[in-house]
Design a protein around this nucleic acid. Structure first.
Lengths: 338, 338
DNA sequence: GTGAAAGCGCTAACAA
DNA sequence: TTGTTAGCGCTTTCAC
């Protein structure tokens, strides 16, 4: 029924071990032998059994994508990353599992243990804010499980992918300043997320670079959700000198800001310019369409997984790669009248 | 290092086979023995190796969630279903893989073969429109792989979960009629999706039941995307007798309709009532917030997987369960003035 | 109701 | 560069 490694060996006239060597791309096989075996595998449509490989060997050819189920950014962000990770896994004949964790609460370390003990996971892809959880990283280290990070805060000795979010945020705010805005507010994301810190830092840097003061009352806390954008906007709209532009740390909060503007009759962008970050599908679906920064999530997932696999397959070390961003200037920002 | 079944056996003073019997919930074990073994497993923190079980036995304790990568509904829909499937799998100690397919193009059957041959998948959860692909279903049958469907078109001899979408759509349109609307248009979804058919059928039924004519020029084709909602709305807005209400077959298209209304200066709901279907997060984030039908995707994923596992574990047959819907009446619909 | 032996398909550690 | 032997941790088959 099933074509086994042994069958390929017999058909080729070599030992099972040699076929195994070819399968695992070990260098110590004569090129002629390798070609013969490869040809037989192909023609016999041989497919190795992951179960047998996992049981006998030290590798499982399995990676897991971990994400936080509480403080998750928009689900579309995670879905795109997942697709990217899957792309890379398929290209290298690895399988992927998905593993939601609840970072608040203590069970989440046990889930790591289970993943390692049960499935012998070879490596994991970490999404924010998991990328910076010291307990999690320590546990992975204990288990000897490799990992790649997406947008990690620490960038030293880390494998994965990141964007220069600070510079991107700075560019966005500089754009607002170029449109004549001076009273520019910022809605911050969840406090300990790297994304919040970078985007806020970029905001401040741009103001400072333009010789504008950083007014603390123009900086309000959010938590990356639509609702928190609404709350933040309401607070900003009660200020004596209302901001003429608001930079929200992500698109969801920007949507909340625009919703609130509608609520009190402010017209975007005439009365208020709004911009976000991420370029989720929503950005083009809002009215007016949202000025934001494009973050290529799927590509980031793909690259992170690729670096992880690079490392697992012993081909080089796995690096931290930077991915470029793109400003998306749309209809929600406009020049300040007068 | 690892606690094996044999270790549990030794600690309990029974044979490995007996421990295996307990593990697999086989009936032919004396209750006292079973308790003893269970206790030992617990205290020794025994975790069976999926690889070994898969290799030796006929089951893999693995299910896959399949989805279409081309005609996919909103990614948030799939993400929620995935979470639900995962919930059920964890509750029954099964693992889940995700498997995107491209239904256009022919490779997708090979991917099924790979899933079965490589991973010995025990069963799959099918999402629309995969639920009704005859080739896919036939292939699964060939392989003897069980499946559960989410919102399948055929409802006979099928395991899974569905909602009465036709009735829900009818209720929505009836609500519009109750508000005084008579010129009610409908934006249809992708032609061969069950969701499109049911929602359109509900629309027509409600009109007919109210003694209103079904005007073909008020029914325009869409494809479940925001952009197609825009196109459809533009078409409807050029009609001599513009509709006073538009029922789009999903929230994304409804958002497109609202966007277009904005574009040409129509005010929702004063000049136009709009409603959608699904109650995605977007529905509450639009301005004005969208009247729609709540479809509990995560719960549907959970239930479908649960029925699948029920079937796999031989406890009963697995049924097709119906899940209730809920109308969400929000700000995008209002009484017709005059 | 329980156990002994064999083997799932592959890789490890050695040997040649 | 290639082959041999043993066994990964479990389930199967068959015996008792």
């Amino acid at each position: 029924m099933r074509v086994r490694l042994e069958d390929v060996a017999r058909a080729t006239g070599v030992s099972p071990k040699t076929v195994s060597r070819v399968l695992n791309e070990e260098p110590s096989v004569k090129e002629a032998t390798r070609q013969k075996v490869l040809a037989a595998m192909e023609s016999m449509n041989y497919r190795p059994s992951p179960a047998a490989r996992g049981l006998a060997g030290s590798r499982s050819f399995l990676v897991a994508m971990l994400y936080d189920n509480n403080d998750n950014p928009a689900s579309t962000y995670l879905a795109e990353i997942q697709d990217g990770v899957l792309d890379a896994c398929e290209a290298h004949r690895y399988s992927m599992m998905v593993c939601p964790l609840r970072m608040r609460g203590q069970d989440f370390l046990h889930r790591i243990d289970a993943l390692v003990t049960d499935h012998h996971i070879d490596g994991v892809v970490l999404t924010p804010p998991l990328t910076d959880n010291r307990k999690l990283l320590a546990r992975l280290q204990e288990h000897g499980v490799a990992h790649a990070c997406i947008s990690p805060v620490r960038r030293k000795d880390v494998v994965g992918v990141y964007m220069d979010e600070q510079k991107a945020a700075g560019d966005l705010v500089t754009h607002l300043i170029g449109l004549g805005h001076q009273r520019i507010a910022h809605v911050v994301g969840i406090a300990d997320h790297g994304a919040s810190r970078w985007r806020q830092a970029g905001y401040k840097a741009a103001l400072t670079a333009a010789g504008l003061a950083v007014d603390p009352s123009y900086i309000v806390q959010g938590e990356f959700t639509f609702g928190s954008g609404v709350v933040a906007a309401r607070q900003l709209f009660t200020l004596k000198h209302r901001p003429t532009a608001i930079f929200a740390a992500n698109d969801d909060m920007a949507a909340g800001v625009m919703w609130t503007a509608n609520e009190i009759g402010l017209k975007v962008p005439r009365d208020l310019s709004v911009c976000g970050f991420d370029d989720t599908p929503m950005a083009t679906q809002l009215w007016p369409s949202l000025t934001t920064v494009r973050q290529p999530s799927r590509e980031m997932g793909r690259l992170a997984a690729q670096q992880l696999l690079e490392q697992l397959r012993g081909r080089g070390e796995g690096r931290l790669v930077q991915i470029p961003y793109e400003l998306q200037l749309r209809a929600s920002t406009a020049a300040l009248p007068g």
